[in-house]
Write a protein that binds this DNA or RNA. Structure first.
Lengths: 100, 100, 100, 100
DNA sequence: AACGTTGAAATAGTTC
DNA sequence: GAACTATTTCAACGTT
């Protein structure tokens, strides 16, 4: 049966390939740690915002919206309305439906 | 790995209370398992929906909307617009037609 | 294939597809309600436990641990193979392969 | 029913609070961008590893495990105390006390 | 009763 | 395009 390739160089268990692997893994781990640090920073800023009385949940939405392509937004919105209409509910925005 | 004892099966301090604890824990575990089963069922229905060509992401949104108090929705929407306006962005999202 | 459509049979909002969507949505909503009921039951059991003087926080930890343990064991086993393979050795079955 | 607060200091959308909000949002966005850059770097390293013939899926597993391990150790320690407390004994400090 | 913490649900992204 | 993983979001809980 065909063996799945695990490490590049063949019979050299723990040899050259091992060194290389170790190096790669360590690089990744370092980058990931930096990434985590950034995430912590972001969290802090949110905390600060909250301390100033802002609603962080809404802030997150705003930031997500800004990141997003306006066209996609519109399309999704349209689709949502379509589904709501198919369910007999009026479009969610612009006030409640008259029914019920 | 060595197993850890959950309760001192035979320790004096654990006696009666230990039995009771065990019973409570098991009841909870049973309920949680049922809960997980239900979650799996829900997942299945979504898969079926997808198979019929529906957009499950939108479906989730619809269901979330239906679950939610209309008043809260409106308030949140208003706040979102407020924030967007404070940032100098038009109220891009919020259900109005794309062309304003 | 390759149509980007909104509902399977399109243009028929509130029609056939609408019925189907409605049915799916309602099924999901029903399942979700059962799920919520179960969650409430679990909460009750915790309340009862608390009433008997147990520390629910610890109980949660214990339950979480019991749930995690089997997984961990599997992962550990998988990992063992992983490392072996990473070292250029075949899966542990039967020890070293003849291929050496 | 409590009123929902929109922006902290005043209703002056686009005013003082608006400046503050904008500043916070931009800081977050900048940090997020750095974070994304890091994620891209990580991805690159994986690509490089793959180019050298390594199985990145396994690499991810290994890295995840190395990250989880220290946590597990802490949890294990915490759990020890947990069990002791569940037995009605105080935290393990000093072993069994005479206070029983 | 707000706060932070934590675990689960959902979403996005990636690989095959 | 389907599955898996990683990230993000949301809700519950205890805490102060």
């Amino acid at each position: 049966m065909a063996e799945k390739k695990t490490v590049p160089s063949d019979g050299d268990a723990g040899g050259i390939a091992g060194k290389q692997l170790k190096s790669l893994v360590e690089r990744i781990e370092r980058l990931e740690e930096e990434k985590r640090a950034l995430a912590a920073d972001i969290k802090e800023v949110y905390a600060e915002a909250k301390g100033h009385g802002f609603d962080t949940k809404i802030m997150r939405k705003v930031i997500a919206l800004r990141r997003r392509d306006p066209q996609d937004r519109d399309e999704e919105e349209a689709l949502l309305e379509t589904y709501l209409r198919a369910l007999g509910m009026g479009p969610a925005v612009g006030g409640r439906t008259a029914a019920e």
